[in-house]
Every structure is written in C-alpha cells, then in structure tokens.
C-alpha cells in the first residue's frame, strides 16, 4: 500500500481541468498500488483552499493547502520546494502532475530534489510488480513509447485531456501547510505579464478549437475564425505557424510541433493545408473538420468531415448554421 501525491494546479483561484485529470490518474494509481491514499497539494493566494471540496469529490483523501499572497503568481521555486518537502514525508509511490507549463517546470525540479525517475507527457499509467509502466506518445505523436520506471518513488506528468476526470467521492481531510521556501524570494523576477486573448478558454482545455491558416488570405479575415469560435460558445482560437510567423496572431496561438499540442473534442481547420508541422499538434483531436479550397490538401486525409470551398464563403455560412443549431436546443 502506497500513497500518491498530486499537484492540483490552479489558474487564479480556480482548479484547472487538468488538475482533476491528474487527481483521477493519482486515484487509479493509488488503487492499483494496493489501496493507498491520494494526497493533493493546492497552492495559491488566500482562498485557494476552497478547491478542497472538489478535489475530494474526484478522489483526494487529504488536501494540503498552501496559501500565501505571493502565490497568486505561479512561484515555481517555492512550489517545487513545498511539494518536495511533502513528498519526503514518506510513504509516497509517486508524485503526479499535469503536463502543462507549470507541470513541465515542476516535474524535473521534483525529480532532482527527490532523486526520482521522471516520465513526462504520459497518457496511461500502470503498475507492473515493482515497476511503474507508462505510455508516452513521442516523435510528435508518431511513435507510441512504453516506458518502465524503477525506483520506489517516481514523478509522472500526465498529458492534458488524455485521462478523463472521474468523480470518486471522498470527504477530504484538509490541512493547511506553509510554503517550504518564501514565495516572494524567487531569483527569477516577473516584471510584466503579457496577457493573451481574454474571455476564451485555453487551447489546452477548450473542448472546441477553431484554427486558421494562410488560406484566410489576409490578417483581417481572421475575424471569421473568431466569429465561428464565438458561435460555438466554448471554443479557443488557434493558428498555424505560417500565420503566427506573419504576425497575424501571437506566437502563443500556434498549434503544431513547435507550438501547442492539442486534443479537443472538435477541431475546425480553416484554410489550413495540413503541413506535417501542423498535423503534429492536432492529429489526436477527436473530431476534425477541414475547410479548404484545395481538394488535394493533406488536411483532408485526417479530417473526419471536409468541405472543399472558399473559406470566405463557407465559414460565415457555418457560423450562421452553428448559431442556429445551438439556439434550437
């Protein structure tokens, strides 16, 4: 029997979807390790402890709450030290994180502090005797790798969207703890935060993504993408590398091998030819729609539903139809 420690990532004071996915992964791992406990650690400004109830509902037995004014920013040095301190209290089989910007930063720090092997961006976790066996899609999702980790404590980060968050009701015991290192003493000082698009879900969490490419012909036509995203109501907006390189959209919108890797329920590719660099970032989407004027574009090879046509004509029609469909139910 061994416990699993999970980092419950927040944005502002709200739990992220990937935090609940990580808790679900941790719950399954604890159960498979002979019925241990899941201990979640949540860190943020005063009030972040309100997330404890939800963490319990998804399977956390204990929630450690770290509240500090300076944690309104993600203070990685302090959070890594606090997680490592907790993990060293003993009895843990694994520390589980989401493979997000935060998890990418915390995972390797924890691996060093705990001298524990680490596997990143995993989509499946299994126990095989004394080892933990994980699956990781590598080579831009073109090769599926199964990794074996030895060691009594391991660090695992879970690909967002790969594991479906499931309720597993517990009434979590809540314990308040202090940060192990003063969060206001970080050596890396944030001078300014450059905010991205407001009012839309993040690309990593949105159930629907509408993305545009060069086929839109001009930067001002990107508003067609925005309007379709608005029609869906819960959509994020993405772009190809060509579009972000040309400055039509910020770099942070880029989907592809060198940008964000996404797997939404629905991906709508508008005026995107489907270069391998782009496909690497979205081919794991559940349903793919493509609208492009070139019937031979590679995007149509992966699109569940393709429409050949001028995006300037088809997209406004789709926007109207989606609005009507959503209004009718």
């Amino acid at each position: 029997m061994a416990n699993v420690l999970v980092y419950a990532e927040t944005r502002g004071a709200a739990l992220r979807k990937l935090a609940l996915e990580a808790v679900t992964a941790a719950r399954a791992l604890a159960d498979a390790s002979g019925g241990g406990e899941v201990h979640a650690l949540v860190a943020g400004p005063s009030g972040v402890g309100a997330a404890s109830e939800q963490l319990g509902a998804y399977g956390a037995d204990v929630v450690y709450v770290v509240e500090h004014a300076a944690l309104s920013n993600f203070e990685r040095e302090s959070i890594a030290a606090t997680l490592a301190d907790r993990a060293k209290q003993g009895g843990y089989r694994a520390v589980v994180l989401g493979f997000s910007t935060q998890g990418r930063d915390l995972g390797p720090r924890l691996a060093v502090k705990l001298d524990a092997p680490i596997a990143s961006d995993v989509t499946e976790i299994n126990v095989a005797g004394d080892a933990i066996v994980v699956k990781h899609p590598g080579y831009a999702n073109k090769v599926l790798v199964t990794l074996t980790l030895s060691g009594s404590l391991v660090v695992l980060s879970v690909r967002p969207g790969a594991i479906t968050a499931k309720q597993a009701a517990r009434s979590a015991r809540v314990e308040s703890i202090q940060p192990a290192v003063d969060p206001s003493a970080s050596r890396v000082v944030v001078k300014q935060v450059v905010e991205g698009a407001k009012g839309r879900p993040d690309l990593g969490e949105a159930p629907v993504i509408v993305a545009g490419g060069r086929g839109l012909k001009a930067a001002e036509n990107f508003k067609l993408v925005e309007e379709l995203a608005d029609a869906f109501g819960n959509a994020a907006v993405g772009a190809t590398r060509a579009v972000t390189d040309d400055g039509w959209r910020p770099h942070s919108d880029q989907i592809g091998q060198t940008g964000r890797q996404v797997s939404p329920q629905l991906y709508v590719a508008i005026g995107i030819s489907g270069a391998i660099q782009h496909l690497a970032g979205m081919r794991t989407s559940k349903t793919i729609v493509a609208i492009n004027k070139d019937k031979d574009a590679p995007i149509f090879k992966v699109a569940d539903y393709g429409i050949v046509g001028d995006v300037l004509e088809v997209v406004p029609a789709l926007t109207t139809a989606v609005k009507a469909a959503r209004a009718s139910h």
């Binding site: 199964t146 493509a290 090879k301 046509g309």
Partner: peptide, 22 residues
Amino acid sequence: RVSVQKAELPPERPAGRIIGEG
C-alpha cells in the same frame, strides 16, 4: 531508471472524407 519497453506506431486515423463543396 527509465527504459523503453516498447515502441510502436499508433493506430492510424480513419481515412478522411470530403462531404461536399462550398
């Protein structure tokens, strides 16, 4: 302490289909 147990090609997406024009 981390080793590759297996490498495999993931299942292909079903072939795409074009449902219409314009």
